[in-house]
Nucleic acid binder design. Sequence first.
DNA 1: GGCCAGGACACCA
DNA 2: TGGTGTCATGGC
Length: 213
Amino acid sequence: MQLTITQLYQKMRRQMGPSGWWPADSKEEIVIGAILIQNTNWRNADRALNLLRQATGLQPDRILALTMDQLHDLVRPAGFYRNKSKALVSVLSWLARGNYDYPAIRQHYGSRLRQELRALHGVGPETADVLLTYIFDVPTFISDKYARTLFTYLGVTGLTDYQSLSQRCNLPDDFTPAMAKDFHGLIDEFGKVYFHPRDKFATSFLSDDTLAL
DNA sequence: GGCCAGGACACCA
DNA sequence: TGGTGTCATGGC
């Protein structure tokens, strides 16, 4: 069957249930996790997250009070620890300037919020969209590797990099923040189950479907 | 022992 | 404006 974005979301939601994404106890934990997870498996990112939790309770001001050597040691298990430490400092100190008042920050920057996020060190196109969706409640389609693989699986061609899909896929206006969060979670959970390195296109409940963008 | 994981950036032409 | 190299760890 030929599906729209909304129909695809509904079908995945029916088959898989709520994704529960992003699993975290606070928005600050999501911000930190979004940086630690970059190009890294969750096991390693979670190790670093737990080291940071033990050391600081994941309180941004306590993280910003660490020396760079201390931060490096905590972030190390996640890999790219120099880059990620620098990214944590740049993003958390920017949020600190807004007193971690996310609605107020969103209000202040308005439609320029994404470009402000992109200007922070360590925030590329994907992390910016993750922060928009999960921190600022701006429903955004996150065209990460799993999304591109899924959409290719559904017959969409030419999805070579992040922006190739990002430019073509906007969420319908009726997508709420909760739906956007859930949709991304479902896409990534689907990818983990059905897209293995050796068998990228396993049989699934979407095998007979195509997608219309 | 190579490949990969919920990317981003510096450098270069 | 794009293409390529680098950043790092741990599991399989």
